[in-house]
Amino acid sequence: MRVATLGYQTWGHRTLQAVLDSDHEVVLAITHPKSDHAYEKMWADSVADLATEHGVPVHIANKPDEDFKAALKAAQPDIIVANNWRTWLPRDVFDAPRYGTLNIHDSLLPKYTGFSPLIWALINGEQEVGLTAHLMDEELDAGDIVLQRSTPVGPKDTVTDLFHRTVDMIGPITLDALALIESGRTDWTPQDRSQATFFHKRSDEDSRIDWTWPAEALERLVRAQSDPYPNAFTTFKGQRIRVLQSSVSTGNYGGTPGRVFIHEGDGMVIVAGPDARTGQNKGLVIERVRLDDGTEMSGKEFFPHGGGYLGR
């Protein structure tokens, strides 16, 4: 088939590479311009550079304006394959090719539509994550499902681990979905939109630790913000502290959320949870921190004794 790709960063790059390595013909690659947004500067393999290396025409755009539509029309693709395209597409774009538009989304739809699905899924304690290949319609990430592939989430997995596992799944699911579409099948699986969850783009504030969360959720937040992602952070005496490693305490601790309490192992227990006053909650053990100057130290080194409150 004649394939046009819409993609950005490493997700779009892996998708384009898979199609280039297949028997399909890539007739156009459309991508976004480079961005200074923290989440768009990492995993930033260039779709434009890869396309240029292979002699594929490139069009750079933020949204589907008239120049975008003209480039797509001139390319005459049989299908569009999208991955990590960041703006809404109208029907006259996604429905223009003979087979429409196949989107690769890094969640098990209908859950985690929208942005940063791996991060939110890990924070929420999902037991598995994965990819969905679906046909686009006018609602974001809502079209009929062609294929899904999943991978389990381990108790120590970071979002970086999950990124590498799911990004390696992009090529196979893309080509397998294209093969099903090219075969003439149309018996795709409609999404149960009553089960849909829609998440916003993350910002700096989303990495700030809220000590009223249960310790178990905070431990997952730390793993969901592993390097090179912006780390989960808190403040202590006006200083920002990035939490690199943490665990759920062995003991139960009571008091006010955010209280710097007592050492456990090489870490410092912080009182946590919405009902911390009951003394029935686990605390979050901060085991390793990074300061603004790049200095890293254990929680026990940074907090030589208890006292004071985080987030103040």
Rank of each mutant, 00 (worst) to 15 (best):
L6N: 05
E219F: 03
A177D: 10
P152R: 03
A142F: 03
V27F: 08
V26C: 04
R208G: 04
Q239F: 07
T295N: 12
Y99L: 14
A18L: 01
T186V: 14
D106L: 11
T186W: 12
P77E: 05
A133M: 08
M268H: 08
M136Q: 06
R208H: 10
D168F: 01
H200A: 15
T151Y: 06
A196W: 08
A70H: 08
H305K: 15
V248E: 04
E301K: 13
R288Y: 08
S298Y: 00
E182R: 15
A18F: 03
A71Q: 07
P117W: 03
E296S: 06
V19P: 01
D78Y: 03
S194W: 04
H54R: 02
R223C: 04
P110E: 10
H200N: 15
A18C: 06
S35I: 13
Q239P: 01
G307I: 09
H105M: 13
G306R: 08
D45K: 10
R149E: 07
I123S: 03
R288P: 01
I145A: 00
A82G: 08
K201P: 09
V243C: 02
R2G: 10
T87D: 15
I209W: 00
H24T: 00
V271Q: 04
K111F: 12
D36I: 13
I270V: 15
S226R: 02
T87I: 13
M169W: 09
D36K: 14
H13W: 15
A272M: 11
S116V: 09
A196F: 06
V3G: 05
K34S: 14
T235I: 13
T197E: 13
I60M: 10
N231G: 15
S247Y: 05
G154D: 13
E182D: 15
V248P: 01
G294R: 10
W211L: 09
L135C: 07
L102V: 11
G184R: 11
T52D: 00
I80A: 01
P117R: 00
G130R: 01
L16D: 01
V56M: 12
F236Q: 02
G55E: 11
V222I: 10
Q76L: 09
T5C: 06
L108N: 00
G154I: 10
G294K: 11
R277E: 15
N281T: 14
I209F: 05
G7I: 03
T31S: 11
D266H: 12
A48I: 00
E216P: 00
Y8V: 05
G125Y: 03
I145V: 13
K201D: 14
Y309P: 05
A82Q: 02
S46D: 14
R220D: 01
M169R: 07
A44M: 12
L291K: 08
R242P: 00
G308R: 09
I170H: 05
W213V: 10
A44G: 12
T10D: 14
K201T: 15
M169A: 13
D176N: 15
N281L: 10
H32W: 14
V269F: 06
A74Y: 07
L135P: 00
S35N: 14
N281G: 02
S194G: 07
I173G: 04
